[in-house]
Each structure stands twice: as structure tokens, then as C-alpha cells.
Simulated scan of single mutants.
Amino acid sequence: MTVTGAGLACSPSRAYLAVMGNFLGRFNPFRALLDLRRYLGTRKKYEILFLFGSLMACIVIVGGFAAGSTVQREWQRPTIIYVQSWRADRTDAEIIAQQKIDGEKKRIEDAKQKKEDDERKAAFKRLNDKLSPWL
């Protein structure tokens, strides 16, 4: 199939696949294993032992970090916020009274949040104090 024209869009699609197939054809896992076997065959016994020892040390260290990285969080009920609808003909006095009620609720929630934050900070401080001799 001959196409006369310039640019990539004028070439047939088989030409793209042929080039990609030749490129990926060089990457063969069996050849890679044969190359590795040939390389390891030329090494001395102690070099191979150090190679596998270092690989095992890396695997143990990374595996230890992966196994110890899970932290179970305490389940909390999700907070659902409902939208309140207000009458359009409310007076300013009603609005101010509702804001005072909502302000008290917000102060109570803020106090609870501050208490939880302080407890969390204290826990991290205790942990830091335990670990500071090691640093």
C-alpha cells in the first residue's frame, strides 16, 4: 500500500505497529533471565552470598516498615449537617435570638474540639519525651 503525502497521518496504521513490534520484541523476560544466569555464573561464591544477603536485608527492612505502618482508627459516626430552611419574613429579633442559641452550641463544640486537640498534643508530647533520649 503506497500513500503519497506528507505527515504521520498519511502513513498506513500497520507501519506504526511494525515499528513498535520490533522495538518491544527486544525486551524478552527469558533473555533477561538467561543474562542474569550468565552474569551470576561469572561471579565468585562470596559475591553471590553478599548479593542475596543484601537483598534479604532490604526486603526485611521494607517489609517491616510496611507491616508496621497500619494504624487502626477508632470508628466515629459520620457527622451529617442538615440544611435549615428559614422563613423569609423573620424579624431581626428572631434572627438575633437564633444566633445566640447557635453561638452557644458552637462554643460547646469548640471547647470539645480544643479538649480533644489538647489530649492529642499531650499524647504526642509524652511519646516525644520517651523518644528524646534516643535522638
Rank of each mutant, 00 (worst) to 15 (best):
Ser85Tyr: 08
Ser85Lys: 12
Ala66Asp: 06
Arg87Cys: 05
Arg77Ile: 04
Ala57Asp: 06
Trp86Ala: 10
Ser85Val: 12
Ser69Glu: 03
Leu55Tyr: 07
Thr79Tyr: 06
Pro78Phe: 00
Ser85Gly: 01
Ile61Cys: 06
Pro78Gln: 12
Gly63Lys: 10
Glu47Trp: 02
Val62Leu: 15
Tyr46Pro: 00
Gly53Cys: 01
Arg77Met: 14
Gln84His: 07
Pro78Thr: 06
Phe52Gly: 01
Val71Ile: 15
Glu47Lys: 01
Phe50Cys: 00
Arg77Gln: 15
Trp75Ala: 14
Gly64His: 08
Tyr46Ala: 11
Gln76Thr: 11
Thr79Lys: 12
Tyr82Met: 08
Ile81Glu: 06
Phe65Val: 11
Phe65Asn: 08
Thr70Lys: 12
Ala66Phe: 07
Val60Tyr: 07
Ile48Tyr: 00
Val83Glu: 14
Tyr46Ser: 09
Phe50Tyr: 03
Ala66Pro: 00
Ile80Asp: 02
Gln76Tyr: 01
Phe65Glu: 04
Leu55Glu: 08
Ser85Leu: 09
Arg87His: 04
Pro78Lys: 11
Val60Arg: 08
Glu47Asp: 13
Tyr82His: 13
Ser69Lys: 01
Ala67Val: 12
Ser54Asp: 14
Val62His: 11
Gly63Ser: 14
Glu47Met: 07
Trp86Pro: 00
Tyr82Ile: 08
Trp86Phe: 15
Ser85Pro: 04
Glu74Val: 04
Leu49Tyr: 01
Ser69Phe: 00
Thr70Cys: 03
Gly63Val: 10
Gly68Lys: 04
Ala67Ser: 13
Glu47Ser: 06
Val60Asp: 04
Tyr46Glu: 13
Ser69Ala: 13
Gly64Asn: 13
Arg73Met: 10
Gly63Arg: 12
Gln76Gly: 01
Ala66His: 08
Ser54Phe: 07
Ala67Asp: 05
Thr79Asp: 12
Gly63Cys: 11
Ser85Glu: 11
Gly64Tyr: 13
Gln76Asn: 09
Glu74Cys: 01
Gly68Met: 08
Ala67Phe: 10
Val83Phe: 05
Glu74His: 01
Phe65Trp: 10
Pro78Asp: 11
Val62Asn: 07
Gln84Ala: 13
Met56Phe: 09
Ala57Asn: 05
Glu47Gln: 15
Phe52Ile: 10
Ile80Ala: 07
Ser54Trp: 04
Phe52Ser: 07
Thr70Met: 09
Phe50Leu: 11
Trp86Leu: 15
Met56Trp: 05
Pro78Glu: 14
Arg73Val: 06
Tyr82Val: 12
Gly64Asp: 05
Ile48Asp: 03
Gly64Gln: 10
Gly53Ser: 09
Ser54Leu: 05
Ile81Gly: 01
Ile48Asn: 02
Val62Cys: 13
Ser69Asp: 10
Trp75Tyr: 15
Phe52Glu: 06
Glu74Trp: 02
Val71Pro: 00
Gln76Ile: 03
Trp75Phe: 15
Phe50Lys: 05
Ser69Gln: 07
Phe50Ser: 06
Thr79Asn: 11
Leu51Thr: 10
Val83Trp: 05
Trp75Asp: 12
Thr70Leu: 10
Phe52Gln: 04
Tyr82Glu: 15
Leu51His: 15
Val60Pro: 03
Tyr82Lys: 14
Ala66Gln: 09
Gln84Ser: 13
Pro78Leu: 09
Val60His: 07
Leu49Thr: 00
Gln76Pro: 02
Ser69Cys: 03
Glu74Gln: 13
Met56Leu: 15
Ser54Glu: 14
Ala66Trp: 08
Phe50Arg: 07
Ile48Ala: 05
Gln84Val: 06
Leu51Val: 10
Arg73Phe: 12
Trp75Ile: 00
Gly68Cys: 02
Ile48Gly: 00
Ser85Gln: 14
